[in-house]
Simulated assay, not measured.
Amino acid sequence: MRIGIPTEIKDNEYRVGIVPSGVEELVRQGHNVLIQAGAGEGSSISDEEFREAGATIHPDAPTLWENSELIMKVKEPLQSEYDLMKKGQLLFAFLHLAPLPDLVDVLLDRQIRSVAYETIQAADGSLPLLAPMSQVAGKMAVQLGATYLQKEKGGIGRLLGGVPGTKHGRIVIIGGGNVGISAAKVAYGLGAQVVIIDTDHSRLSYIDDVFDGKVVTLMSNSRNIREAAASCDMLVGAVLLP
């Protein structure tokens, strides 16, 4: 199969749909991998690295889409890419189609066979392709939140880990899934006081074990959320399904 990886064009999207090790594996299995020139630059992967892994480099998006049976992207196609899709083509990406009715219409009209990464479930109901993105989001939430607590960024001037003789920052995380526990690990590592709120008591028990009782776990209800949110320096929303 001819598998094409275009350059992502969404604002502030620097990821690429495959890495060189993935190219090697697909080529080993007999597939042809096509990479748009410069597709990996945002992830610090050069065209030469892809070429050495066995990919062929195509100069532009129209050429790549035209010559590919399967398109592998990170994010959904944007409007400027709609006309590049060929009837019956395969598309793998994080699609999140609910707010994109125009894209849904194009996919149906072109008979694009699409697989949305965020909907793929393992036998236990987990979301293995969404999980790594959730882990990144959780860790970055605390990293960015700590930055915006600084006075010069408009924050209250709170250092999450504090110093001897001062209060530590207090972080409340609503949701104890992949996003929430990843955020908690960074927050705890920085020395913050951490509160995690979730609807699932068994999940809270697991979190309590993971952190050896050193974070506060609360059952999710209106009162607990209201009181915790009112007393925190940073609030992290980490709920997948409300």
Results as ranks from 00 to 15, higher is better:
219 M>A: 10
214 K>V: 04
211 F>N: 07
216 V>R: 13
219 M>H: 02
197 I>Y: 11
210 V>T: 07
216 V>P: 01
226 R>T: 05
200 D>A: 12
228 A>M: 05
194 V>Q: 04
194 V>A: 00
197 I>E: 15
213 G>F: 10
199 T>M: 05
217 T>K: 02
218 L>M: 03
212 D>S: 13
198 D>Q: 01
201 H>G: 01
202 S>W: 02
226 R>M: 02
221 N>A: 02
225 I>R: 13
204 L>F: 05
195 V>M: 05
229 A>W: 06
197 I>N: 14
201 H>T: 02
209 D>S: 08
200 D>N: 08
208 D>F: 10
202 S>E: 09
190 L>Q: 12
220 S>P: 02
197 I>A: 03
227 E>A: 07
203 R>W: 00
199 T>C: 14
200 D>I: 08
226 R>Y: 10
196 I>F: 03
212 D>R: 15
229 A>I: 09
225 I>N: 04
217 T>G: 01
212 D>Q: 12
212 D>K: 11
204 L>H: 01
195 V>D: 06
199 T>A: 12
212 D>H: 09
197 I>R: 06
220 S>Q: 13
193 Q>W: 11
214 K>E: 11
228 A>N: 06
202 S>K: 07
227 E>K: 08
193 Q>G: 08
197 I>V: 14
228 A>Y: 01
210 V>C: 07
209 D>F: 15
200 D>H: 02
218 L>N: 04
205 S>L: 15
206 Y>K: 08
220 S>A: 08
227 E>W: 11
210 V>Q: 12
196 I>Y: 00
219 M>E: 12
202 S>V: 01
209 D>I: 15
224 N>G: 11
210 V>N: 07
209 D>M: 10
193 Q>E: 09
224 N>C: 11
193 Q>R: 09
202 S>I: 00
192 A>L: 03
200 D>G: 03
208 D>N: 15
207 I>F: 12
188 Y>D: 12
209 D>T: 14
187 A>D: 04
189 G>R: 13
229 A>S: 11
214 K>L: 08
214 K>D: 14
212 D>G: 02
213 G>P: 07
191 G>Q: 02
191 G>C: 08
222 S>V: 15
225 I>E: 14
219 M>R: 01
229 A>E: 08
189 G>D: 09
195 V>I: 15
209 D>P: 01
223 R>F: 06
225 I>S: 09
221 N>K: 13
210 V>Y: 11
193 Q>D: 03
215 V>H: 11
200 D>T: 12
198 D>I: 02
222 S>F: 04
215 V>Q: 13
212 D>P: 00
203 R>S: 00
210 V>K: 15
218 L>R: 08
218 L>W: 05
202 S>C: 01
207 I>Q: 11
193 Q>M: 06
223 R>T: 15
223 R>V: 14
189 G>M: 12
221 N>W: 00
200 D>F: 07
